[in-house]
């Protein structure tokens, strides 16, 4: 009797399987899928590289700056990088469709470049990373942030130290 009710209900509801690939697949908002990297907000702290259990994330110094590579074929989609990233520069999208032909296997990489810049104060070549100013008090204004960003790490520290006065 019990099963007959289920049978009647299932007959009315139709198949439970998803129509994919002919229809859309169930994809929740929070699904942990493909990695997305935003070089503009990266502080270059490289914590993601250290917490990645699969060693899928690599930073490398090049003449143009520092490159970021996340190998999706090595990635285990655990989300440690996103969780420990202080500025949300690395983010997991809910795009799960990573199927590809074998010829593309070396292209399954999320690539980013933190470019070099010339420090506006001392003229040294340094990375144009997002400044680590989360704990700065009072919070930096947009102009101040841009000014800090245009400097090399040494001049950034100097700038923030001298800044205390106007508060």
């Amino acid at each position: 009797m019990n099963f007959l009710t289920i049978f009647a209900r299932n007959l009315k509801q139709g198949p439970q399987t998803e129509a994919f690939p002919l229809g859309p697949a169930f994809t929740p908002e929070r699904l942990r899928g493909r990695i997305e990297f935003n070089a503009a907000t990266c502080e270059g702290c490289r914590i993601c590289e250290r917490v990645c259990p699969a060693n899928a994330i690599r930073f490398a110094k090049t003449p143009d700056g520092m490159t970021f590579d996340c190998w999706h074929n090595t990635c285990v989609f655990c989300g440690n990088c996103e969780f420990y990233c202080p500025t949300d520069a690395i983010h997991q999208t809910n795009d799960w469709d990573l199927s590809h032909v074998n010829a593309d296997k070396f292209d399954m990489v999320e690539h980013g470049l933190i470019p070099n810049q010339t420090c506006v104060e001392c003229g040294a070549t340094a990375l144009n990373t997002a400044p680590m100013v989360k704990n700065a008090k009072p919070p930096l204004s947009t102009e101040e942030y841009a000014e800090v960003r245009a400097r090399c790490p040494k001049c950034r520290a100097k700038y923030l130290k001298n800044r205390k006065v106007p508060a």
């Binding site: 099963f3 989609f77 440690n80 997991q92």
Partner: peptide
Amino acid sequence: MHMMQVREIGQDMLESIFGNRQDIG
């Protein structure tokens, strides 16, 4: 099949809350 479909409610719940069906992280 029916019981696995019931479990699927739970699996969808895990996927929606944690982002993965098994390794919920």
